[in-house]
């Protein structure tokens, strides 16, 4: 039985009207921004299920944009996020679509970076403002953004997992969850770790130097 904090019951402080369609959407946007980086010029939101059907009435569109702009769920600028993005020269698009057998509150967020590259992050708002990120660049992942998270893209090399977890342990950080996937033996794969404390730039830099590592992203909680 989960031992709820009183603030899981009373809270969050948020911009209405819906914890799943507004607060959760803003958190999805913010975590996606953490993954994609801040140097983007355009964002396309592919809305699925209930998100596609009711996004205007629930302000899901404004909340998602507020999130990708880095706003918190309680930021009163949230309701003007569409205008704020326009003022910043960021091109925003919403496309109602069917993403297949996904949670009804799912969105795939595609960022177009200033250098023309694209990165997509897919996640779902699963109730009470809680979220789950389930795809990055089409690769299946699963994390909530509640804990500091490391997403490491790397080749499947013997011993690399050990090297990476040692770097984290040396920094006195505990790993709460770890998931490793790969496209095949020796091929590209993903390593996702949730930790109990903040992931510093220093750790990221050290892991970047490990043999076979392609990229490292650290997402500290939003």
């Amino acid at each position: 039985m989960k031992n709820y904090s009183v603030f899981d019951i009373l809270g969050p402080i948020m911009i209405g009207p819906s914890s799943s369609h507004t607060a959760g959407a803003a958190r999805l946007g913010k975590v996606a921004r953490g993954i994609a980086g801040e140097d983007f010029k355009a964002v396309t939101f592919y809305l699925h299920g209930s998100f596609a059907k009711t996004y205007k009435g629930h302000g899901t569109d404004r909340a998602l944009v507020a999130g990708v702009l880095g706003m918190e769920t309680y930021d009163e600028r949230l309701r003007n996020a569409l205008f704020i993005a326009k003022d910043m020269g960021i091109d925003i698009k919403f496309i109602e679509t069917d993403l297949g057998d996904e949670h009804p509150n799912t969105v795939n967020i595609e960022f177009e970076k200033k250098d023309g590259s694209k990165i997509s992050v897919q996640g779902a708002s699963i109730g009470g403002g809680n979220i789950i990120i389930n795809k990055i660049q089409g690769d299946s992942v699963e994390f909530t953004g509640t804990n500091p998270t490391l997403i490491i893209k790397k080749y499947d090399l013997k011993g690399s997992i050990n090297t990476i977890t040692s770097i984290i342990a040396e920094s006195d950080i505990n790993i709460g969850m770890m998931k490793v996937t790969r496209q095949g033996k020796g091929k590209e794969g993903l390593m996702i770790l949730e930790t109990d404390s903040k992931i510093t730039d220093e750790i990221v830099e050290k892991i970047e130097k490990v043999d076979g590592v392609i990229s490292v992203r650290a997402i500290n909680p939003v």
């Binding site: 019951i9 009373l10 809270g11 969050p12 402080i13 948020m14 911009i15 209405g16 009207p17 819906s18 914890s19 507004t22 607060a23 302000g59 404004r62 309680y74 009163e76 949230l78 309701r79 009470g128 403002g129």
Partner: peptide
């Protein structure tokens, strides 16, 4: 306030935020 995208406390939810 909730329906107008103002700031509220979910108590326990946004839909029931007025009672407490």
């Amino acid at each position: 306030v909730n329906a107008a995208m103002g700031r509220i406390v979910a108590a326990p939810t946004a839909g029931s935020c007025g009672i407490m």
